[in-house]
Amino acid sequence: MGPLMKSPFTRSPLFKPLLLAAAIAVLTAWLTPAQAAQPTGAAMAHTCAGCHGTQGKLGRVEFVPLAGMAETEFKRAMLDFRAGKRASTLMGHVANGFSDSEIDAMARYFASVK
């Protein structure tokens, strides 16, 4: 027996439920889409390029160029689109296809494009 089993904590009546909760938490985290296989930031960013330019570099003004955009700016826009807090023609639909951590990865990609 390791020292952990002898600690006062392990003898607590809460120990078993806690262990169970921890196991569930680990399992849930493993099963949620955010933890499922995730495309790379670049792969996700490439799906934006048809409107926002290759690697987010865009010479036109109708759509927002994403290359070099600050991470916070990108994340806030995508999260607001996804939550329906910001009106859009179709970005709400698109944002719905990405998890928080995927939006993070895309934000890092676009911020890194010079």
């Binding site: 003004v61 927002v64 160029p65 955009m69 700016e73 806030r76 826009a77 607001d80 910001r86 009106a87």
Partner: peptide, 21 residues
């Protein structure tokens, strides 16, 4: 500002995120 989608180009707080607008 919300419903006419001004934020798309002029920024959520009226500060444009790009040099285009």
């Amino acid at each position: 500002h919300q419903s006419l989608m001004c934020a798309a180009c002029h920024g959520e707080t009226g500060v444009a995120p790009t040099g285009n607008w």
